[in-house]
Simulated assay, not measured.
Amino acid sequence: MLSNAQTPRLPDSQTFSINCNGKLIELDTPKIMGILNLTPDSFSDGGKFNDEKLALVHAEKLLKDGAEIIDIGPQSTRPNAEFLSSKEEISRIGKLISQIKKEFPESLISLDTFYAETVKFGFDEGIDMINDISGGQYDEKMFDVAAETGLPYILMHINPSYETMHDKIRFEDITLEINRYFSEKTNELLQKGVKDIILDPGFGFGKTVEDQMKMINEVEYLGFGKFPLLIGISRKSFIYKPLGKSPLDINEETQKLHLKVLEQGAKILRVHDVAEAKETVNQFLRKK
């Protein structure tokens, strides 16, 4: 029997669309968001792309491999990562957003930040969506700025402060907890005037391995069927640590989980390994 906060998955005919700077993106088929970390200290690719030329080359590869969205991350949020100010994030991004837009005008760019000022900068440079891991909790101006830009906003479930984002909390029912959070935050965003919301249940942030596997199994009950779901499990420790493997050696296991969440209605996969995820999406579409 489902708890009150669990809503049965809507039929497969349910579709969503998001407005990215006037460009309507239909989510009737799953999209791939390729990760472009500009950081020297990210957990699996730190330092690989924190130079503008290297970042542009990688952006091109992500797009050629099948990514529709490039998620630019100027700050690592792994445990014990270096904490950057918004000013430092903006300095690290430099002209990369506008460069990608110039080189690949059809690309969609998501900016991974929890700072309103970084969003303002990114908006002026041409970003298409906001990926805020904090759910507006680390910068009180974030929701207002999201509304001002009119961009789609990715709302992630996470602990309420930067200092506690990775503290493991054992919830009585993780699905119930995430849906309570989504209900509260989406109401606030809608009241502020944010029109396009994407939900991210927050794999890898303050959750036990057991709870994250429960989340995988209950993706279809997350988000009330009202908003598209983004799933970001790429190279996450809840997959590789129990297997005794490294983040780079779990592609097969990750793709099996990707297929599982796609079958439960996930609309966006946030990934490092785009070509492999693209094949999984194609496999999913062939089975439909």
Score class of each variant (00 low, 15 high):
2 L>T: 00
3 S>I: 09
5 A>S: 13
6 Q>G: 04
6 Q>F: 05
12 D>Q: 11
12 D>H: 11
15 T>H: 10
15 T>G: 01
16 F>A: 14
18 I>S: 03
18 I>Q: 01
19 N>Y: 02
20 C>I: 01
26 E>C: 09
28 D>N: 15
30 P>M: 04
36 L>G: 07
36 L>C: 08
36 L>F: 04
37 N>I: 12
47 G>S: 14
49 F>N: 15
54 L>D: 15
56 L>W: 07
58 H>Q: 15
59 A>H: 08
61 K>M: 12
63 L>D: 08
64 K>F: 05
64 K>E: 14
65 D>G: 08
65 D>W: 07
69 I>K: 02
71 D>P: 06
71 D>Q: 02
72 I>S: 01
73 G>V: 05
74 P>A: 05
74 P>L: 08
75 Q>W: 02
81 A>M: 07
83 F>C: 09
85 S>A: 14
87 K>N: 14
91 S>Q: 13
92 R>M: 08
93 I>K: 04
97 I>P: 06
100 I>C: 11
103 E>G: 01
103 E>L: 10
105 P>C: 09
106 E>Q: 13
108 L>D: 00
109 I>H: 03
109 I>F: 03
110 S>G: 06
112 D>I: 09
112 D>W: 03
112 D>E: 11
119 V>A: 06
119 V>Y: 10
121 F>T: 09
126 G>A: 10
126 G>E: 13
127 I>P: 05
129 M>S: 04
132 D>P: 09
133 I>D: 00
133 I>C: 02
133 I>S: 00
134 S>H: 07
138 Y>D: 00
141 K>L: 15
142 M>L: 14
144 D>F: 13
146 A>D: 01
148 E>N: 09
149 T>Y: 11
149 T>S: 10
151 L>V: 04
151 L>N: 01
155 L>W: 04
156 M>E: 05
157 H>S: 13
159 N>E: 14
162 Y>C: 00
162 Y>N: 00
164 T>A: 12
176 L>Q: 13
176 L>I: 05
179 N>W: 01
181 Y>G: 06
186 T>E: 10
187 N>F: 08
192 K>A: 15
193 G>V: 05
193 G>I: 11
193 G>N: 12
194 V>F: 02
194 V>I: 10
196 D>W: 07
197 I>K: 05
206 G>F: 03
214 K>T: 14
214 K>C: 12
214 K>W: 07
214 K>L: 15
218 E>A: 06
219 V>M: 15
220 E>N: 07
223 G>Y: 08
227 F>A: 04
231 I>E: 02
231 I>Y: 05
234 S>Q: 02
239 I>S: 05
240 Y>K: 03
247 P>R: 05
249 D>I: 04
250 I>W: 10
251 N>S: 11
254 T>A: 06
255 Q>S: 12
256 K>R: 10
259 L>T: 02
261 V>P: 00
262 L>F: 04
262 L>A: 06
267 K>V: 00
274 V>H: 05
277 A>F: 06
282 N>R: 15
286 R>W: 06
